[in-house]
């Protein structure tokens, strides 16, 4: 359906549409990158918690071994 619409469009209009779509795509990519970067900065703000988490090695290991034992039992 859309294809038919495009085929009826004049070349000039088609070129204009392509340019607009390309610009829109660029803006969308920029917005996506901006959001990703923002999220990364937010994540780094939790660094204190991650420093704390790094100290809980043995608890992690205990939980993990329990999980493996359960998996083997199944």
């Amino acid at each position: 359906m859309e294809h038919e619409n495009f085929s009826s469009l004049p070349q000039k209009k088609l070129k204009k549409l392509i340019k607009e779509t390309e610009n829109m795509l660029e803006e969308l990519k920029c917005e996506l990158d901006k959001r990703k970067t923002h999220k990364q900065h937010e994540e780094i703000d939790h660094l204190e918690e991650y420093f704390e988490d790094a100290d809980h090695n043995l608890t992690n290991l205990k939980k993990f071994i329990q999980r493996v034992i359960n998996e083997i039992k199944k």
Binding site: K39, Y50, A54
Partner: peptide
Amino acid sequence: SSTTTSLMVPLAGSGVF
């Protein structure tokens, strides 16, 4: 180095990095 590399684990785990 363990501290630095351990810090990277939750950053990757969250999927943000």
